[in-house]
Nucleic acid binder design. Structure first.
Lengths: 210, 210
DNA sequence: GTCTATAAAGAGATAGAC
DNA sequence: GTCTATCTCTTTATAGAC
């Protein structure tokens, strides 16, 4: 049996989760293309050659970040609305679940949203499929609320879903935990704005319901 | 006087506008860092060395794209709301002007929104200043409508402005002219959604104005 | 205003030792 | 599982001719 050398003792299993998290953090701050494998390795306390024991190539990291973040948010959001019988309340629950998940994995979601174009075309297509699948979940929740008469029907579900995704997704780009609102407060604010609108309630009487 | 050679006749003044437009288009599709000066030169029908007669370095292009797009939208939006005396109508006008400008220069706005981090820290700070200045214009319009009692006052102008900018800015990422809605129709849809909300008007009676 | 040629630096990835 | 060393390719940018 071989004795453990100093080299062995210094070894630290990097672990898939830590690797993805470090990659997402780096990709977020410098961008995927500008982020070097040397920088990433440095953040993990290893040399860039050692990185290739864990991954095939740099792009694998980006791909897995996109896949993981999208699969996770779809599962979480879908299961969170499944318990909700009131269609309008389901919209609120969806918004809360989306914000909580996206901001919990903020580096991964940021990277997924902004670096799609850096993937090879085959993998990009697969990620777009996952994104479409998640958008379908969101659209489904909207559509159900429209059919129940809870949400207005004069705007097609496609655009309603895009609007709410704009509102939610891109908050990741400016939200800072120390900036004031908590995640829940932000979700509540956006939820109210989306559903009730920005108009002063006292002004609503001037506009008759159709 | 020197005779014009074949070389001279083949020369085409690239022109600052065309250069920026080509750069923005390329940066949008491949990302700033991945876009090579060779690709850009190729798109202009010249060699990459010739590019350096027009610019100092690659980053200059990104910087000018950011500055131009932000200065332009601020001027256009501010002057469009200046004529409007009704504060709520000013919000609608702002939304239309923003969408029209951002989608007219869609490659430049896309690049400005997504490539800020690729600028040197000094230039990034200047662009952030310009972005803040534009956000201040938007916040001003919101604030005026709130003070006039046209918009709800329970959400701080900061978050109202961020919400409407989310809604507008990130539409650039998915809007396609051939996709259905015209720019005006999209602006109208987003404007109604922002102001009136997604709720069905018939449901409003259940919630008393405060 | 554009070219050819090239300098100089940095990138992703592999080989083989430990 | 990590290292050192290195290959190979690509990149930005410059020099100097036309």
């Amino acid at each position: 049996v071989r004795r453990r050398s100093a080299q062995d003792l210094a070894s630290v299993d990097v672990g898939n989760g830590k690797l993805l998290a470090a990659a997402a953090s780096l990709f977020r701050s410098t961008g995927y293309t500008a982020a070097t494998t040397r920088d990433l390795a440095g953040a993990l306390g290893i040399k860039s050659a050692s990185l290739y024991y864990h991954i095939g190539k740099k792009e694998d990291l980006l791909y897995q970040i996109c896949v993981d973040s999208l699969e996770r948010i779809r599962v979480v959001v879908r299961s969170s609305v499944a318990d909700e019988s009131d269609p309008l309340e389901a919209v609120r629950v969806m918004i809360r679940a989306h914000m909580a998940t996206a901001l919990a994995d903020t580096d991964m979601h940021f990277t997924m949203l902004s670096e799609l174009r850096s993937l090879s075309s085959g993998r990009r297509a697969k990620v777009v499929q996952l994104r479409d699948a998640y958008e379908a979940v969101v659209r489904g929740v909207i559509q159900r609320a429209q059919r129940a008469g809870s949400l207005r029907q004069d705007i097609r579900p496609k655009y309603m879903a895009l609007a709410v995704l704009n509102l939610l997704n891109w908050s990741i780009f400016w939200y800072r935990p120390r900036g004031g609102l908590s995640i829940d407060e932000l979700a509540e604010t956006l939820s109210e704005l989306f559903i009730d609108g920005a108009v002063d309630p006292r002004r609503r009487s001037t506009k008759r319901p159709r």
